[in-house]
Design a protein around this nucleic acid. Structure first.
Length: 339
DNA sequence: AACTGAGCCAACCGCCGAGAC
DNA sequence: AGTCTCGGCGGTTGGCTCAGT
C-alpha cells in the first residue's frame, strides 16, 4: 500500500534550486503566504514537487532563518535537549530561534556527535563510555545465561530505551578496540561539571524536567509541560532552554532501572535482590554529584564497586579495574556463540 | 597536477498523524 | 467509520569542497 506520490516525480525538476526558482517561491509567499503547498508549484510557475517547495522555504528561504554558524550557547542547548529527548530535531530546533530541524540535525551529525565522542561521551546515550563499560559488565554473561537471556531481552526490547542497549554494544566495541584510558578521567570531570538534572518523556510532546536529587512519591501523569512551556518557565526573560537555569522540582522517573538489569547467573539471588532494592548503593554516598539518572543506572557501578570488595577504593580505580577485567574477557566473548 | 577520502549540507524519501470530507 | 490530503518529521543520500598524498 503506502501513499500515492504527492506529484508525478518523473515530470518534476529535482536537485539544487536556482536563484530564479527561489525568487518565484519568495514572490509567491509574499503574495499569498504559506499553506497548501501542493498548489504552490502550479501557481508560482515552478516545475517542482509541492513538498520540495515547502522544504526549500522552511529550510532555506524563510526570512527569519539564521545562516551563520552555531554559537556555543546553541551547542549547549542542542546537547542538553538531545540528552533529554533524543533525536527529535524539530523539537530541539524550536529551542533555537532561526534554526531549522535540518540545520540542527546536520550540525549534530557532523560536529556535535564527534565532539561528544572525543570527550568520551556516547552521543546516543550521553553516558560516559566508562559507565557503559560498567554496564557492559552487567551484561557480559549473555553468552551463558540460557533461558534467562530470552526473558530479560524481552523485557529490554519492550522498553523504548532498548535501542540504547544495542547502541551501547556498538560503542563498547569501539571503546575496547581503541581504548583510551585517559577518557575515564574526562568522563568523571564531565559528570561532575554538568548539571545534574534530567527529563522524562511522558508522551510524544511532553517533557518534564526535574532535579535529579529530589525523589518524591508522586507519579509522572500529574503535571507535564511542553518544551516551549519549559523554556518560558525556565526563565522569566523568555530565554530559550537554558541548562544552567534554576529548575523546578518534579517527580522522579517512573521506571526502575532495576528492570533492565540482566540476570547474572554468577550472582546470588540475594545479591540481585539487594541491587534491585537499593540500586544506588555505594555510589549514592561516594559520588553525590552524579545525576539521579546516572545513579539509577548504577547497578553496574555497584557491581563495579563490588569488584574491589573495598569501600575505600576510588571510583576511578574500580572502573579501571572492571575495564581491564572486561578487556580480558571481551575476545573470549567475541569467539563465543550467542545462539 | 591529479587523485582520493573525509566533511559538510541541501535535498530527497518514506512514514506518520491530524483533520477534512 | 473509512478514505484521502496535507504538512511534519527523522533518516538518508548525492554532490560539492577541501585537505592530504
Amino acid at each position: 500500500m503506502g501513499w500515492p506520490p504527492c506529484c508525478d516525480k518523473s515530470n518534476v525538476k529535482r536537485g539544487p534550486w536556482t536563484a530564479e526558482e527561489d525568487a518565484k517561491i519568495l514572490a509567491y509567499v509574499a503574495r499569498h503566504g504559506t499553506g497548501n503547498w501542493t498548489l504552490v508549484p502550479k501557481k508560482a510557475g515552478l516545475n517542482r514537487c509541492g513538498k520540495s517547495c515547502r522544504l526549500r522555504w522552511t529550510n532555506y528561504l524563510r526570512p527569519d532563518l539564521k545562516h551563520d554558524t552555531f554559537t556555543p550557547q546553541e551547542e549547549e542547548i542542542i546537547i542538553n535537549v538531545h540528552k533529554a529527548i533524543g533525536s527529535r530535531w524539530s523539537l530541539i530546533a524550536r529551542q533555537l530561534p532561526g534554526r531549522t530541524d535540518n540545520d540542527v540535525k546536520n550540525y549534530w551529525n557532523t560536529k556535535l556527535r564527534k565532539k561528544l565522542s572525543k570527550m568520551g561521551i556516547d552521543p546516543l546515550t550521553h553516558k560516559p563510555f566508562s559507565q557503559m563499560l560498567s554496564d557492559y559488565g552487567n551484561i557480559s554473561s549473555f553468552a551463558n545465561v540460557g533461558n534467562s537471556f530470552g526473558r530479560n531481552i524481552n523485557t529490554l526490547m519492550s522498553k523504548p530505551e532498548s535501542s540504547l542497549v544495542v547502541n551501547e554494544f556498538r560503542n563498547i566495541n569501539e571503546m575496547i578496540l581503541k581504548p583510551k584510558p585517559e577518557l575515564f578521567q574526562d568522563n568523571l570531570r564531565f559528570a561532575n561539571n554538568n548539571p545534574s538534572w534530567d527529563f522524562q518523556v511522558s508522551n510524544q510532546e511532553t517533557i518534564q524536567p526535574y532535579f535529579s536529587t529530589v525523589v518524591t512519591s508522586s507519579c509522572s501523569s500529574s503535571s507535564s509541560s511542553t518544551i516551549a512551556q519549559l523554556s518560558s518557565s525556565n526563565s522569566s526573560s523568555g530565554q530559550p532552554f537554558q541548562s544552567q537555569a534554576a529548575r523546578p522540582a518534579s517527580p522522579p522517573s517512573p521506571f526502575s532501572w532495576s528492570e533492565f538489569l540482566i540476570y547474572d547467573p554468577h550472582m546470588s539471588m540475594e545479591h540481585q535482590q539487594h541491587l534491585e532494592l537499593e540500586p544506588q548503593g555505594m555510589l549514592s554516598s561516594t559520588n553525590s554529584t552524579l545525576t539521579q539518572h546516572e545513579q539509577e543506572n548504577s547497578g553496574a557501578y555497584n557491581k563495579c564497586a563490588d569488584v574491589s570488595s573495598s569501600s575505600t577504593i576510588s571510583f576511578v580505580d574500580a572502573i579501571l579495574s572492571k575495564d581491564s577485567e572486561m578487556n580480558s574477557q571481551y575476545f573470549a566473548l567475541l569467539n563465543g556463540s550467542f545462539d
